[in-house]
Amino acid sequence: MSVPHALLALLSEGPKYGLRLQSEFEARTGEVWPLNVGQVYTTLQRLERDGLVETSDGEGERSRKRYRITSAGDRELAEWLRTPPDLVPPPRDELVIKVLVALQVPGTDVHEILQVHRRHVIEVMQRYTQVKAAAGEKDVALALVADAELFRLEAIVRWLDAADVRLKQRQRIAPPVTAEVPLEPTQTMEVSQ
């Protein structure tokens, strides 16, 4: 979440005080992203330094300053909205690594490992769904935030499901090497590379 750009977006509606920016930010993100007032003012300071916002009330206490977006800020916001987020997968997805490792550990039922993670992810999904259910159908901002998390989590469940099927098919074609075949030291060296 880019807090600076979220603040620019709120200011694109018109000049606002810092406290109002904080409460609007929380309301519009379905209150799933709490933001403290200190964060708001540090971000505003940086935006002002970069010429993306300006204050209309000059000097004095920060809470008395009203912030307005500059034309450079407008351009920055427009550009950011159209910049694709980083979709390159992280080089090491922790869950993928755990499953790959589980395949190597003798006596480990990889399907059981997959199920542990599936249950955990679905429990987290249940919590997001509860948030949506409690908010009712009218709170669109909250629904959008919850949906984004739910679709991301659902993708993990689908990956786990696919892994389950793939590994089951593999077992049918070639039964896994069991502990009856002792591993030679040279083989473990290969694994550790």
Partner: peptide, 25 residues
């Protein structure tokens, strides 16, 4: 999974067995 997450409890079946279920969120 998204539809299941509306439930109070999710029960997992595999090869005809109940293998797992969620605990109350």
């Amino acid at each position: 999974a998204q539809l299941a997450s509306w439930a109070d409890r999710v029960v997992f079946l595999r090869d005809g067995h109940v293998v797992d279920q969620t605990v109350a969120p």
